[in-house]
Write a protein that binds this DNA or RNA. Structure first.
Lengths: 198, 198, 198, 198
DNA sequence: GATGAATGAGAGTTCATTCAT
DNA sequence: CATGAATGAACTCTCATTCAT
């Protein structure tokens, strides 16, 4: 129950779980997982810590739930990628879609990027690693030369870098996004071309 | 003091500071900064926590000292880069040297990579950011098209990714290192070529 | 409500109170009173904690209710004992009946035995103490020498010990029960004989 | 540092560990292990909770340390018992000594008696069980009839009961102690006599 | 050059209990 | 007859830090 202007308590229409997730994600992304305490999350929501435990069994479960809810689009992307022919077009489209996925769940991926060490220790670490590998396996031909495999991985991580590290570069964000995308597309294209030459 | 064969304690003539740094770096790189407690460091050294405070004023100072001691090569690289003409050769040589620098202080850079969020909050965050910017400014012509600037940044981060993320890829490490280097070199070369076309 | 084969919930026509008692006793006896949480009880029953509060006002009331329901036989035994002449036969028969009572409500008495400190703080502590005193007063003649009073108390507690402590002794349980009973009977007999000698 | 009459702080001459044990034992014996919080112990000592953790790694370690420090006499008794011939005299002397041991470390054994369930879960549970078995093996001849074995165990537990349960009986404590001892001695004597008859 | 002893702040977690629905 | 949502108080435990010796 919250407090209204006249001091009475107010119904929370069962959206508390969602609100916890929202606040937690914001704080996790801003300050990191370990530096964000449950007290802090609770205070932001005007709830007691115990309330958090009604909705989530542990602190880790909060981040796991966020991960599970927000990485659905990546799973979808993997499914889609697997259903397509392994052409250059497909790979380019994958890069474009992946770029969009990252942008849509920016806070989560910013969190993952800034806390790679922490994430690895959490239960989501392995899952995330698997997803990354799945994506890579769609981009790269395991028979391809190592250098082309690297190019593809580099394309993926260029998107990450573009989102989370180049924030301080000049130019407006949208322009930068396009430039990053172009470089990533170039990388997969080059990787593919060599394949054709073989 | 350590324990010798006859059970007596042994002098560690003044190298304790160094030993603290060594152990701390190992633990920070393995477990992260916040998940490594001073108690843990002290135990690994068979010393009390208070002893750490004799050598370092705070926990943060330990990592700062590591950073300062170990990033000298990057400073040198920047100085060198600035003293050279802005040719493609220079940039390629920079990439090669940077790659070596990363490899030589692998634990520190692995730590920085895995704990980007934490690092940002620490005092070293700004310093590191400045270094990265300095490097970038040597690689990229601020007048160059955005996409080429991105390419150069991407080259640098490809080296990072190659060191800390692609560990699970097949192939032996040395081969992988070379492949990564090749991709990075390609990226700066492309960035440069376009510049020439203008 | 439970789950039937077609997935719908099933009536538990008013026996929930009973089921709570059953599960609670089992858990209390196994883990102790304080180490058993209401959450745990509720989960075992596939019911919410709040449901427990519909049937019992507090956690303590659960154990009180168990105690009241299950120690009726002891009350009966006391009533019977008082109605009999204070002969040796009576005392021996009391021992036999007491032994049976303990065996019949084994989990409760095991709980009481293992948690004597806790029980003392609970509301049932005093009640139980009174019952024990009542029993003792039937066994022992307050005029009898102290040593004989001790013998009678010892007889009673030998039965307890026999049930809850000697579980790890060799021999099959039934044999052991009889041996324990024989020792207890001996003790009251000796107490009585001395009385005769006076 | 403590507070003196004039409000200044006072040295604690390194006896804090001992003081923690003393206070903890008193509270554990009075209220039980789980119902005694570390906050409570700390407050009694005018120290912070963290100070307790300087001296003991966990709450359980406090009780373990008490157990280890205070049950040495039982170990000694076992050693002594094993070195003696298995005569009636030995057994009787064992009973007498055991009675004294219990009296000397009364608070610890009162705690053990009142919290048998808790003790079982703690690390000391198994150790204690072993000690009891060792004692039993000295008292009882494994070849003896079951009923005589029971008599011996009963003798031991009569001593316990005498110390911790019969407190509310009339008569002065010393008289009661003697009466209890007499009953226990009788029990082992009877057990032994039967053996002779075989 | 280092230790022993302690602190204050705070962490995550669990508990019995309440109450509107 | 029972649930969903929440609370407040307590818990054990850990941390970086301090300081007299």
């Amino acid at each position: 129950m919250g407090v209204t202007m006249d001091g009475t308590k107010q119904q929370r229409r069962g959206n508390t779980r969602q609100r916890i997730q929202d606040v937690a994600l914001e704080l996790f992304a801003d300050q990191g997982y370990e530096k964000t305490s449950l007290r802090e999350i609770a205070e932001h929501l005007d709830v007691t810590k115990a309330a958090l435990y009604y909705h989530f069994k542990t602190k880790e479960e909060i981040i796991v739930s966020l991960f599970e809810d927000l990485t659905k689009p990546i799973e979808d992307l993997i499914v889609w990628g697997r259903s397509q022919p392994h052409t250059l077009q497909t790979k380019q489209e994958m890069i474009r879609r992946y770029s969009r996925v990252l942008a849509d769940a920016e806070p989560l991926f910013r969190f993952m990027h800034d806390n790679q060490g922490t994430v690895r220790d959490l239960r989501i670490g392995d899952i995330f690693k698997d997803r990354m590998r799945d994506l890579r396996d769609i981009f790269t031909d395991p028979e391809a030369p190592l250098v082309d495999q690297v190019r593809c991985v580099s394309a993926m991580f260029t998107l990450h870098t573009g989102m989370f590290v180049m924030k301080d570069m000049d130019g407006d964000p949208e322009e930068r996004r396009e430039a990053v995308l172009e470089v990533a597309l170039d990388l997969v294209t080059q990787a593919h071309e060599h394949a054709g030459e073989r």
